[in-house]
Simulated assay, not measured.
Amino acid sequence: MTSAAMPQTSRRTTAPAGPAIRLIGLSKRFGETTAVDSVDLEIRSGEFFSMLGPSGSGKTTVLRLIAGFELPTAGVIELEGKDVSARAPFERDVNTVFQDYALFPHMSLMENVAYGLRVRGVNKADRRQRAAEALEQVQLGSFLDRRPSQLSGGQRQRVALARALVVRPKVLLLDEPLGALDLKLRQQMQVELKELQQELGITFIFVTHDQEEALTMSDRIGVFNKGRIEQVGTPEEIYERPNGSFVANFVGTSNIFPSTLARSLYGRDDRFSVRPERIQLRPLPPEGPGTGIAVTVTALVYLGHATQVRGTLSDGTTAVALIPVTAGRGGEFAVGQPAVLSWNQQDVVWLPPAF
Rank of each mutant, 00 (worst) to 15 (best):
T2N: 15
S3R: 09
S3K: 15
M6D: 10
P7C: 04
T9E: 14
S10C: 13
R22L: 00
L23V: 03
I24D: 15
G25K: 07
A35G: 08
S45R: 11
F48N: 00
S57D: 09
V62P: 10
L63T: 05
I66L: 11
G68K: 02
G68R: 02
G68F: 05
L71F: 14
E78G: 11
E80T: 13
K82I: 15
A86Y: 13
D93R: 05
Q99A: 09
Q99W: 04
Y101I: 04
M107K: 14
S108N: 10
Y115D: 04
G116M: 12
R127S: 12
A131K: 02
L140H: 06
L151S: 09
L161V: 05
A162G: 03
L165N: 11
K170H: 05
L174K: 08
L174Q: 10
L178S: 00
Q187A: 13
M189Q: 05
V191K: 01
L193S: 03
E195D: 13
Q197G: 01
E199H: 11
D210R: 14
A214R: 00
L215C: 05
T216S: 08
D219T: 06
R228A: 04
P235K: 02
F246D: 04
F246Y: 08
F250R: 00
F250S: 03
G252L: 02
T260R: 14
G267R: 08
D269T: 07
P276T: 09
Q280Y: 13
I293S: 10
Y302T: 04
T307F: 11
S314A: 14
S314T: 11
I323Y: 06
V325I: 13
S342W: 13
W343R: 07
N344F: 11
Q346N: 14
A354M: 12
